Amino acid sequence: MAESKENREEVLTCPICVQTFRKPVTLPCQHSFCRECIAVYADKSKPGQTDEVTCSTGSEGVHQLISCPVCRTPTSLGREGVAGLPPNFHLAEIVERFSSAVKVEDDIPYCSLCGEDNQAKAVKFCTDCCLLYCKDCLASFHPIMGAMKRHRLISSQEYLSLETSQRQTSGRDEQSTQQASCPRHGEPFCLYCVRCRLVICVGCVIDHPEHAVRDIPSAAENAKPAVLNKTSELEKVLQETKESLSGVTRLYNKIQETQELHTQEVERAYCAALEALQAWKQQSLDGIKTRYSQWSVECSAILQHFQLHSQEMERMVQASKDLLASLDVEFLQVSQTCTISTIGSAASAPVKYFN
């Protein structure tokens, strides 16, 4: 890119002054020079170098003859001299475009992060970081992923346009503090058209024929009462709104206080009910334990009595069976001591516990 720029500068450089062309003109040999440079060159040429020609009208004249500074081709300047050389409009347009491009390129600001010893031209500007980045610093310190993913990057040219627009806006703000003037005529606004409801200058009066026109102070004074009345109405509405707001605020605070009181009452009632329920539970459990413990003791005593009585009955049954299996003589002898009535009374003894 540097070589391309140097080549363009060389092509657009006058061979005489070695500067960018200024109002270039072209000789018949197609070499171009600055009009001023070729004029100075012609003045320094030898006065004896002339060219005698015959005009179309038959008149003769002596024209200055110069050699092209590049190819040394003889050139007759004609009756008008250097002023008659044809201007090279195409070359002038190229020079203008190149100058504009160079100006823009030269105006590009430097990177905000590079050191002063090796400061490079910026290629991007981050509207979030408010910093200018060259190509290397952009890759190193402003990654496209992570926290800076959503940052907005604009080109250096857009940054310059942004700076220009901000400066213009600042200029408009400064102008707004000064007396307003008509953009069309440049005169200060001093009149007011009642029909169009516009402020105008003296030059604008012709555009408002047969319209009622007043000076700005009296028109403003005449319009102020309506604004004052409207302001009073707004102030009254504002006062009523403030009063309503105050009432609603008090109501809101009362609701919050009442809610807190009711919440505390429910909490206290719940705690009291929980304590009462726990006391009833403990009392009930203690009563059940006491009653059933007593019943268990009584039942255990009865169970032990029946176990002993059962064992006694088993011995008596076994003795009775043994008696029946003995010889008749033994049976008759033993039966005298153990009667049937004794066995029956023994068998009916436990019934008293279930009456």
Score class of each variant (00 low, 15 high):
D136A: 13
P143C: 05
N88L: 01
R152H: 12
K135N: 11
T75F: 02
Q168Y: 04
L160H: 04
Q119L: 02
C114P: 09
V123T: 09
P183L: 06
K135W: 05
V82C: 08
F89C: 06
E93S: 14
V95N: 01
E80Q: 14
E116I: 09
C134W: 06
E105G: 06
H151W: 04
Q168W: 03
C114A: 12
C182I: 08
C111W: 03
E187N: 14
R172W: 06
S165D: 14
C129K: 09
D106N: 15
D128N: 12
L113S: 01
E187C: 08
R167S: 14
M148K: 12
C111S: 06
E174N: 12
T177Y: 06
L131T: 06
T127D: 01
C129Y: 08
E187M: 09
F125R: 07
K103N: 11
E116Y: 03
E158W: 07
G171R: 07
T177F: 01
Q166G: 12
S181Y: 11
Y159L: 09
L132P: 05
Y159W: 15
A83F: 00
Y159P: 05
Q157K: 15
R172I: 03
Q119N: 14
R97E: 07
S112T: 14
S170I: 11
E96I: 00
H185E: 06
K124M: 04
V104L: 14
H142P: 04
C111F: 03
Q168K: 15
Q157M: 11
E187V: 05
P86M: 12
M145S: 11
Q179Y: 05
V123C: 05
R150D: 13
K124R: 15
Y133H: 01
C129E: 07
K121N: 04
S140D: 10
D136I: 03
E158D: 15
R79H: 08
L160M: 13
A122R: 03
E158M: 14
Y110W: 02
E163C: 13
F141N: 01
V102E: 15
T127A: 08
H151V: 01
H151N: 10
H151A: 00
Q175D: 09
L77V: 11
L131I: 07
A180W: 04
E105M: 13
C114H: 14
S112M: 02
L160Q: 14
N118C: 08
Y110V: 09
Q166F: 01
C182F: 12
K121Q: 13
F89D: 11
A101N: 04
